[in-house]
Design a protein around this nucleic acid. Structure first.
Lengths: 262, 262
DNA sequence: CGGATTCTTGAAGATTTTCAATGGGGGTGG
DNA sequence: CCACCCCCATTGAAAATCTTCAAGAATCCG
């Protein structure tokens, strides 16, 4: 459906047998940022069975109608959550990066009502539902961070409703850039107000409810105003405060450490 | 901020001491629709402490910035979830009805990033976080229905992103009506393709990302096409199949019983 | 190096907004 | 019980934002 784009070239995943213990580290880091984890919890998580796999840009990890029996933990690359609508229209409702388990909801939502697609080449590792359920049964307090993770995603959806529903194009794009910079900074994938931004203008259009033509013109305006630089799939933000102001961005909904949003 | 609208006049709530056991029945019914509940679970839920209260139309149950120590279970009336944006703009991201615990996420999200406001007069009963946490600790498998409930809400947010982002006004409104009819039918508040629809055209505008003027004109067109009747805060759907078609409505995301969507 | 995808720009057109003014309805108070 | 008043609904006309269509340039990838 989508053309292939091979922007990142992650090393081929290690065979599972040799490095399982290291694979799930991004998950531990993510959960740590959501609650306190005991050493015993961390061990249990790291011992989850995990089956790494490479997806090429444009491929779907999970598709609408699927009834998954596993969740994908993203280790490298970008994933987008999207719906296909009538007349060939598409709406993206989220972007996910390393450390995210974008289809965690499938644990309690049997049938997928949308797709998860690879924006770039993606390395992900699958964890059987069964193993996750067993983990939660043995460590019931782990419900908190997992549940909370899905709640933060829900808070982001709400913000996107407001973004798409009520902000004009310029502000809408600015807001998306603020969010995606912070989301990456929170897990160490961005700093110094520069970060990867690998999606095409068509992807940006489908995430903001605009057309790629209008995204193009809006990006031109934002560059003219020295609000952003964007080339070679890298975003640079010369003046964070000014971008935040232009976006009317309030990071509360991301539930981050206060330090990050400074 | 919002004008008061007193459309429904629910009976004054019973004093807590006399009827606590009955109060929480809507919650049990809701959870039953999400998983199997044992008799023991149901008892435990019904014994949760609950403090009923009446909100007048236009009042907020919870406001942005709050750090709730309790959740509100709606017993009667309509609640909307909304954000206030710059320039006096507003975006509604959800509507909730009897049986919903709209602020359940506050259990794991300390600070509110949006408001919950009463669309009509609302009867709700508050349940302390502490009591809910204790319940979940003693009955760990109750995590499933509660978590699942917040996941269905998240699925609805995603659909709203698509609705607001990619559908034209006519289809967008039609889609909202389909969703709200089914949402009410699922808990016995609607049948025979007619249901309450108590929000103003301004509310509908803020839910769909349009202006009230355009909502007005779009409603006129929908009435002209005999797609809906809407007066005295009641919606009538003369031909459900035709409305579904006009909306390109696919109920999968609501995770309902198959029967209901027929 | 070649083909395909993505980016860019112009011009015309559609949808939706804004501004403004009138009419209607229900709740409150006299 | 009636009248008033405020909100809400309705409609017209003009304007803005964004889309569509189309074509050429740049970039990426194999």
């Amino acid at each position: 459906m989508q053309p292939l784009r091979h922007r990142f070239h992650p090393a081929a995943p290690e065979p599972m047998s040799t490095a399982t213990d290291q694979q799930l580290l991004p998950l531990v880091r993510k959960l740590r940022s959501l609650t306190h984890l005991s050493a015993r919890d961390e061990e249990a998580i790291l011992r989850l069975p995990a089956f790494p796999r490479l997806f090429r840009a444009g491929q779907d990890l999970v598709s609408e109608g699927d009834r998954p029996t596993q969740c994908w933990l993203i280790l490298q690359g970008w994933v987008q959550r999207y719906k296909l609508l009538g007349g060939g229209k598409r709406q993206i409702s989220a972007f996910h990066v390393a450390g995210d388990m974008a289809d965690l909801p499938s644990l309690h939502m049997p049938v997928m009502d949308h797709n998860l697609g690879a924006v770039t080449d993606v390395t992900a590792t699958s964890i059987p539902h069964e193993a996750l359920r067993e983990l939660l049964e043995r460590h019931p307090h782990l419900h908190a961070p997992f549940w909370r993770d899905t709640l933060v995603d829900a808070a982001i959806f709400r913000e996107w409703v407001a973004n798409v529903g009520r902000r004009p194009a310029y502000q809408r794009l600015a807001h998306l850039f603020c969010e995606l910079y912070l989301k990456q900074a929170a897990v160490g994938l961005a700093q110094d107000h520069r970060c990867p931004m690998p999606m095409t203008q068509m992807d940006l259009a489908d995430a903001t409810g605009l057309t790629s033509v209008h995204i193009n013109r809006t990006l031109r305006d934002m560059r003219r105003d020295k609000l952003i630089e964007l080339r070679s799939r890298m975003l640079v933000i010369p003046d964070w405060a000014r971008l935040v102001e232009a976006a009317e961005f309030n990071p509360t909904y991301l539930q981050l450490d206060a330090r990050l949003a400074a």
